[in-house]
Design a protein around this nucleic acid. Structure first.
Lengths: 348, 348
DNA sequence: TATTAGCACTCCAATCAAATGAGTGCTAAC
DNA sequence: GTTAGCACTCATTTGATTGGAGTGCTAATA
């Protein structure tokens, strides 16, 4: 059987209607809703075909139809394709979301929290944002200072002015001169390097040059590596978890509990973010529908993710978690705008 | 009317039973449950009195009784008093909670998250912990370094090895010598000072001594102050929010949504923490029952908080949020143990 | 051949009455 | 002061009934 134009129109109508109401859609409704001028009986025949083809489902014998994951997928893919062709809508709506303006924030985490929050408030869905991965970013500055007899603090500044630090405990006390030498050694060899390029070979070479202090250099490099790595296991901020209660299909006790839990654990979100960053493609926007995510607690949800870039190869992901029947157009639009705004921020 | 011994026993029996079952308790149940050897009829008479006195409630005419906030309050107060007298229970149960062992963590926030999590897992209630307030703590070390032409990074280490940092933008470029002088100036005047003592007078005096660079000193001090203040607006970590779904009286959509929301916003928790820190008393443990909190979303909850101290005047609060009928004894015991453990941590 | 009107049928959801049973309050007896 | 006994209350459960939305199928129509 073939998905001809008419079937497509009916499918779209079913989905759109279901997105609005959340109730199964009957043939009569479609008959009026569309401009096809077909009777409900004809629609029924077509809908029976669509069920057979797997695009819609019938909760029970005498009920209307609801979209299946496959149906949503088709719909979303078409929408995404359309959106990229008619890019003029970009200008049209740019003003619209005032609440989404991002204030310049000195502290990265404060900014991310703010973005997550405003995203949740504006869309009425739950939201998340991952801190930008620093991989690919370059070392800008390293400073080793003595705090007291056997404690040092290592401060590392990356491009994009991300500051990391770490305490280092040293067995033997270091005098000022040695400390100075170490600082010079570290800075001359490491500044400007992308953090990936700090590998074992380089560390060995540094240790050698440090002579009698090779142990300390080892410790220091470890500490530096650790401080960089620190939230390379993707810090994720979430907001608006309670929004899921606005959608009856998620608000049921059992489901809600699972979703909240998944949300809190963040493990699942982390893998999703990694997934998104790995799969990045044309628009940078990806949609996961129901079972397309591994996690069973998300089987009644959809997640829309977007990759943002702050320059210097610092990429992160932001996303919306909502019911399958979420307003994909609005969400995708909002995310696109936010992506653009985040990319502006780096210029300031 | 007077709350004699027998009434007290009956009240306690009602509460204990209700804590377990969550169902209204009838006279017949009490008649068997206690060793009073009284018939249900007598119990009924007494319970009628207890209702009149406000310690228990009757959801509707022909139902059993449930404890009122006043009843809970009496029960909790008595329990707390008992617990402080028979402190031997301390030894008895110390082994019991294996999962509660706190691993030494270099990073404060990682440790706090871990504590919150283990608290939630062990109790089956939601949990929270506030980062220790640094007020009262002393400055240990300040370092100002140039990252590039017009950006400095200020690193501040407080006692307890809390590290804070902040970027500073300067209009005019500073040469190495000036920077060195500034560092010396800051360290000689500020090291060892409790952070509260950095007031306007001191700043003015520093500015004066900085001579032509007084503007910069102002900026720097501001940055330092800001970085210290940063999470003085009480960072709070929460965990186990989904546990509320385990208690039917909270799992209903509307209520759950409000609670989750309150939990996420953290505003209410912040004021609670401040409250707790301000009111600290004998044991350091406080119980808030239902309406004793301002927030209406918490009207069906109780919160038990404990104040921990990491030395150096660094105090924080940890707590448990659950239904009113939570297992107060267990919760208080667990919190006490955790307090002790946290206080051990500082010694390592 | 594609479309449509018509009709019997299905199934959910809402409504209602009756039955159930836990628990009370009160009174009279012990 | 305590208790047995009894009538009464009220939430909850159960089952039967109904209404209506929606389907599938068939026969008539264009």
């Amino acid at each position: 059987m073939e998905l001809d134009d008419r079937k497509m129109k009916i499918l779209t109508a079913v989905i759109k209607n279901y997105l609005e109401t959340g109730e199964p859609v009957g043939s009569r409704t479609i008959s009026k809703y569309t401009d096809l001028n077909l009777s409900s009986a004809t629609i029924r025949n077509e809908m029976a075909d669509l069920v057979e083809m797997g695009y819609i489902l019938q909760p029970h014998t005498s009920a209307g139809r609801i979209p299946s994951d496959k149906g949503y997928r088709l719909y979303v893919d078409r929408m995404m394709a359309e959106m990229t062709t008619q890019m003029d809508e970009k200008n049209k709506e740019v003003e619209e979301l005032k609440g989404l303006l991002i204030e310049k924030e000195e502290k990265m985490d404060a900014m991310l929290k703010q973005v997550a929050r405003s995203l949740a408030v504006n869309t009425n869905y739950a939201s998340m944002i991952s801190a930008p991965s620093v991989s690919g970013s370059k070392l800008k500055f390293i400073q080793l200072s003595r705090v007291d007899a056997n404690q040092l603090v290592a401060v590392v500044v990356l491009e994009g002015n991300i500051i990391k630090n770490n305490m280092i405990r040293v067995a033997e006390e270091l005098d000022d001169e040695t400390l100075l030498k170490l600082n010079i050694l570290l800075n001359t060899h490491l500044n400007g390097l992308p953090i990936e390029s700090i590998n074992l070979g380089l560390i060995a070479s540094l240790k050698q040059q440090a002579g009698i202090h090779s142990d300390i250099v080892g410790d220091v490099i470890d500490a530096v590596a650790e401080s960089i790595q620190e939230d390379e296991d993707l810090e994720i901020y979430t907001s608006g978890a309670n929004n899921i209660f606005k959608y009856p299909e998620l608000a049921d006790g059992q489901k809600a509990s699972e979703i909240i839990s998944t949300f809190e654990e963040k493990q699942m979100l982390t893998t999703l973010v990694q997934n998104t960053l790995a799969n990045e493609e044309r628009t940078g926007i990806q949609v996961y529908i129901g079972d397309e995510m591994q996690d069973s607690s998300m089987k009644d949800c959809s997640i829309v993710t977007a990759t943002y870039e702050l320059g210097d190869g610092m990429k992160g992901t932001l996303g919306i978690i909502g019911p399958k029947r979420m307003d994909y157009e609005k969400v995708v639009g909002t995310l696109k705008k936010l992506m653009r705004q985040l990319e502006e921020v780096r210029k300031t």
